[in-house]
Structure formats: structure tokens, C-alpha cells
């Protein structure tokens, strides 16, 4: 038993050198999935510890970054299902259905496209908000493809789903994302000439309401 120490020690250093360059990528994905820094940090740390523990199972010559992301994905699913701190799946399904019907309406329309111009108006916060609201299967596929530059084949490996599923998640996810992004772009386009205090007022109202209700 004690003889193992030497080899695992050198393996450890090897692991560090191979794995640490991906901290930012893993963290960014974790942050977009959990939507907060604390959970994201825990998720990334857990990913590293699991990866270290199972480093002997990693096959030399295969994609190490994809392997790390697969562990991140599994950790996310485990934690997410355990915690249930977010809206349950059924809510996502409802949101998705609502968006979906809008998307298919758009698909059947002939394209005259104010959308192209509107894409120009999309702000960083519109993209982030729209991403945050996507069902997590779609969100993850989009993050892996668009922000991490993984190929469809790699995404299929990471998510452990068939290639066709990757394609449909990207397709549907991007359609939903686009529809939401453009809504937000329209919204602030409108707010720009309209009343910019709308959001703040609503917030204040609900706080007042809470205070009243609790006191």
C-alpha cells in the first residue's frame, strides 16, 4: 500500500500541469450553469477532485479538456438534482413550450427580417439573461459549442448523448435563445424612448408589498 505513494505523487504533478490550464473555461461554464459564483467554485473544485481521483481512467491520447467537462457536467447534474434550489423541470418545460410555439410561428413566417438589424441591438446582458433562462440541457450544449469551441462529436461525448441529440439541442436552444434575446433587445429599444424606471418601480413595489405583508 505504501509503495503506491511515489507513483501517485508524480501522477499528481502530471495531473496539475495537464488540468490547471482549464480552470477558467470550467469556471465560466460552471458559472453560466449555476448562475452564481459560489456554486460555480464548488462545482469546479469538485470536478478537479473527481478528475484527480479518476485520472488513471483517463485514456491517454483522447481529449483531456472534453473529459474534464464531462466530469463537470456529471457533477452539475448530481448537485442540481440533489439541491432543487432552482425551479423544477416542469417549470422549464412550460417556459419552453411557450417559447417553442413562438419559435415555430416565426419559422413558418416568411423572412422579411427586422431580426438581422435587431441582432445589432443585443446587449451583453440580453445574451446572458437569455442564456440563464434556457433549460439547462440546451444551455450546456450552447456553452460548449459557442464559448468553448467543442465539435459536435466532442459535445456528444461530454453530454453522453447521440450526435443527433446534440444537433437538436443546439438547434432548439439557439432558436429559443434568439427569440428571448430579441425580445429583450426590443424591450430596451422601447424603454430607451419610453419609461426607463419601469423595472425599478416594480422592484420597489414588490419590496413594499413584502414589508407590508410581513409586518
Amino acid at each position: 500500500m505504501s509503495k503506491k505513494v511515489d507513483s501517485s505523487h508524480s501522477q499528481g504533478w502530471n495531473f496539475e500541469a495537464a488540468a490547471m490550464p482549464f480552470v477558467d473555461s470550467l469556471y465560466n461554464t460552471a458559472y453560466r450553469m449555476t448562475r452564481n459564483s459560489e456554486d460555480a467554485q464548488d462545482l469546479v473544485q469538485e470536478t478537479y477532485l473527481k478528475a484527480y481521483r479518476h485520472y488513471d481512467k483517463f485514456q491517454e491520447g483522447t481529449n483531456f479538456k472534453a473529459w474534464l467537462f464531462k466530469i463537470l457536467k456529471n457533477s452539475f447534474i448530481n448537485n442540481y438534482r440533489k439541491k432543487q434550489s432552482r425551479p423544477p423541470q416542469s417549470d422549464f418545460a412550460e417556459i419552453e413550450d411557450a417559447l417553442e410555439s413562438r419559435v415555430s410561428d416565426e419559422a413558418t413566417q416568411n423572412i422579411k427580417n427586422p431580426e438581422d438589424e435587431l441582432l445589432e441591438d443585443v446587449l451583453d446582458e440580453d445574451v446572458q439573461r437569455a442564456l440563464d433562462e434556457l433549460p439547462h440541457d440546451y444551455r450546456m450544449a450552447i456553452l460548449l459549442a459557442d464559448l468553448e469551441g467543442f465539435s459536435y462529436k466532442e459535445i456528444a461525448e461530454i453530454l453522453e448523448v447521440p450526435l443527433g441529440t446534440v444537433m437538436s439541442r443546439l438547434y432548439r436552444g439557439r432558436k429559443l435563445l434568439e427569440s428571448a434575446m430579441l425580445d429583450y433587445a426590443r424591450e430596451h429599444g422601447y424603454l430607451r424612448d419610453g419609461s426607463p424606471a419601469k423595472m425599478r418601480t416594480r422592484d420597489a413595489d414588490s419590496k413594499e408589498y413584502r414589508d407590508k405583508a410581513s409586518g
Binding site: 490547471m20 469556471y27 465560466n28 467554485q41 443585443v122 445574451v127 442564456l131 459557442d146 464559448l147 434575446m181
Partner: peptide, 19 residues
């Protein structure tokens, strides 16, 4: 648009240290 407008979050230095 997604690639450019979805700002990247950098891992906090403390996370690196913890790992």
C-alpha cells in the same frame, strides 16, 4: 453574437489556490 456578447467569467484566484 453569443460568442462575443456572453462575457467570460474568470476563475477567482482563490479558487485556483483552493484546488
Amino acid at each position: 453574437v453569443v460568442r462575443k456578447r456572453c462575457g467570460r467569467q474568470m476563475a477567482p484566484a482563490d479558487l485556483r489556490r483552493r484546488i
